[in-house]
Amino acid sequence: MSVVTNISHPTKAASDELVPSRYSLRVGDIEVLVISDGVFSLSASTLATNVEPADLSAWLTARLESVDEYKWPLNVVVVRSGDRTVLIDSGVGEEFPDAPRVGKLIARLDAAGIDPASITDVVITHLHVDHVGGLLSEGLRSRLRPNVPIHLAAAEVAFWTSPDFSQNTFGGFPDVLESAESRFVDMYRGQLRPFETEFEVAPGVVACCVGGHTRGHSVVHIASGGDRLTFLGDSVFENHFDHPDWHNAFDHDPEEAVRVRLALLRKLAASGESVLAAHLPFPSVGRVAVNGDVFRWIPTPWDY
Rank of each mutant, 00 (worst) to 15 (best):
G272Q: 05
V275P: 07
A13T: 15
R215G: 02
D68H: 13
V3K: 14
S274Y: 15
A155M: 06
A14E: 13
G226D: 02
N50F: 08
I88G: 08
D234W: 04
F159K: 03
G286P: 10
S271I: 09
V34T: 14
V123I: 15
C208Y: 09
I124F: 00
H213E: 07
E273S: 14
G225Q: 07
A13Y: 07
G93Q: 06
D175L: 13
R26N: 05
G91I: 09
S118N: 12
T49A: 01
D293V: 13
T125A: 07
I35L: 11
Q191G: 04
V129Y: 14
L152T: 08
V34K: 00
R193K: 13
A263M: 11
V4I: 10
E200V: 06
V132W: 04
D186S: 14
S36A: 11
E17Y: 09
A107V: 02
R22C: 13
V4F: 02
P146N: 07
V122N: 07
I7Q: 02
V76E: 04
L25T: 12
D55C: 11
R145L: 04
H252L: 11
T214E: 09
E95I: 12
A112G: 09
F237E: 12
A155E: 11
P116W: 10
H247C: 05
G103C: 06
S43A: 13
V76C: 02
F295W: 04
L18N: 11
T230N: 03
